[in-house]
Design a protein around this nucleic acid. Sequence first.
DNA 1: CTGAAAGCGCTAACAA
DNA 2: TTGTTAGCGCTTTCAG
Lengths: 351, 351
Amino acid sequence: MKTGRRPTIDDVARHAGVSKSLVSLVVRGDSHVSPERRAAALRAVAELGYRPNAMAQGLVQKRTRIVGVLVSDLNNPFFADVIAGIQARARSLGYRVLMNTGDRIQQHEDEAIETLLQLRVDGLILGSPMMESAQVVRASKEVPVVVVGRPARAASVDSVADDDAAGALAVVKHCVSLGHRRIAHIDGGDGAGALERRRGYEEAMRKMKLSSEIVVGRGAYTEAGGYQGARELLERRPRPTAIFAANDLAAIGALNAIEESGLRAPHDISLVGYDNTSLAAMRHLSLTTVHQPRHDIGQMAVDLLIERIRGGRVKPRRVVLAPTLVVRSTTAPPPRERAPLSRAHRAPKSR
Amino acid sequence: MKTGRRPTIDDVARHAGVSKSLVSLVVRGDSHVSPERRAAALRAVAELGYRPNAMAQGLVQKRTRIVGVLVSDLNNPFFADVIAGIQARARSLGYRVLMNTGDRIQQHEDEAIETLLQLRVDGLILGSPMMESAQVVRASKEVPVVVVGRPARAASVDSVADDDAAGALAVVKHCVSLGHRRIAHIDGGDGAGALERRRGYEEAMRKMKLSSEIVVGRGAYTEAGGYQGARELLERRPRPTAIFAANDLAAIGALNAIEESGLRAPHDISLVGYDNTSLAAMRHLSLTTVHQPRHDIGQMAVDLLIERIRGGRVKPRRVVLAPTLVVRSTTAPPPRERAPLSRAHRAPKSR
DNA sequence: CTGAAAGCGCTAACAA
DNA sequence: TTGTTAGCGCTTTCAG
């Protein structure tokens, strides 16, 4: 496992018969070095298996070229693509990425951030953090912070998220165009952006003149949360004919509840998710959902971050990306009502 | 964003009117400090918002108390629980976790490890790495390494994985007990542990006296891989009556292919996955699969790692955890054959 | 273009 | 108990 202590830049210098600083220049790819010495240094590096100590570098340079990423929930495939976008962009800008997860537990999130902060990462990207805004602000006092998946509330923090209002409106319109009126929502509990998505739903319902049909079940951005929310909604009479879940995971949980009740989607009840994760795309599931440009979100987050790191921009930026409805197989016209009464004032509005 | 430079331990010491080392002791919780000075130091820490610089600490202490984790694929929910296990155990042992992902690309994996190594993490856990064994060995020269999800091949590396042979045998036995004989396998391509799983399948088939029925389709640990493999298998005549995919993701891909061919599982063809991820448990999917104790795997990985870090154990350890078959709804007796011929020598063996 | 020296923020002896 | 001192491994002036 180990052969004495690890070689330092001094060892390399001695081995190559040059000075420390010369080696330092070579290792970092500076061009103002004579070919011979460069070669000598490089050879020594290879022979000794020298690996620069990032801590020592960071200590003196006062930067690490590391962006820290906090992911609220690794179970949510939504983040996989966002992170891919982050990694790709960071790589091309010469930064490295280090992740940490909070398991959807605030205290863990705090610890995760603390770790990253103590390491002196150059910037922080928070993926749908559960943590309170105050914590985010606190972190932003130390280092540039970009929040992903929910709009930032603080002035010192950038954010990139999708337009929940637009997404929700598209969903509601789609359902209405199929003939639904009793369109219920399962919210994301205290998950990131859940409030915005819920408001988007309510607003959309009002826009479609369905204020009186607004019904929200309490959920979470998890399968279990969706299941709970659906149970609550399915007990209502009259039952909703369409359910709009706060994300795909919740939609799947809702689907479980629906099937458990002996109902089928979309025959008896239509179901819509949010995020267009790989789950939704599964042919077997084929969930109607809302697509967010995840990769772009990740890239944009890095761009904002680096911009702050480099330029010292101060003005906060709230980037909002347009979502798109993806119609698959879990939405269909509502089943015919037994009592024709409720069909009476159906708004024929469609898009 | 920033208010001048960050406070250092010197600032704290000056502010509190004590020495650096006193502050250092207090911050690290040393007990040999008088209450008054401790209080003074703590107050100064709070007032200045002091946060120890982990790089400086690491530099002098020659350890970071960080375990680095490489995750091959964030899309695979398998890792979420393993990581939860890692985090939990690491936390309780006073270590922090920093993750990195390689997107299933070898070069990225190498870079990810390099980042972690340059940061001088105390140990490395590699989650189902795609990288070659040589790379793993190279890393293990720098720092203790534990491989998760595939047996380590090198003497300097520990590993913790499940018993693929046992898992495969359970799957094959289950299928046989339902009356299947043409049980095909979709392998994991060059994914971690794919070879072992495939060998386990072949061995199991032989044990069940079905050597002549061994058929392997080329796949990967992804939905796309499973889809491809299934396409290949479904073209065969006679068609397999059961498919055993290398993991759940692949099984889902296979399911897509099956349904696309107008077949249904388990009515026309039985399907088994591996890993018992949250995907498999989805009621709507209800995939028969093999459960691995993911949380335990993560914990065990940390235990092995810390043991090496602390004690300097040298003897390699290969921990193998027992998997269990989880029978759900994608397996059933095979459809009746048109030609009764092939039913003639069905082995009635069951478990 | 190259080398010597100073110091990043912290801990670990060692003294006091 | 507490303060002083000497580095950890590296980069960065600043002379040569």
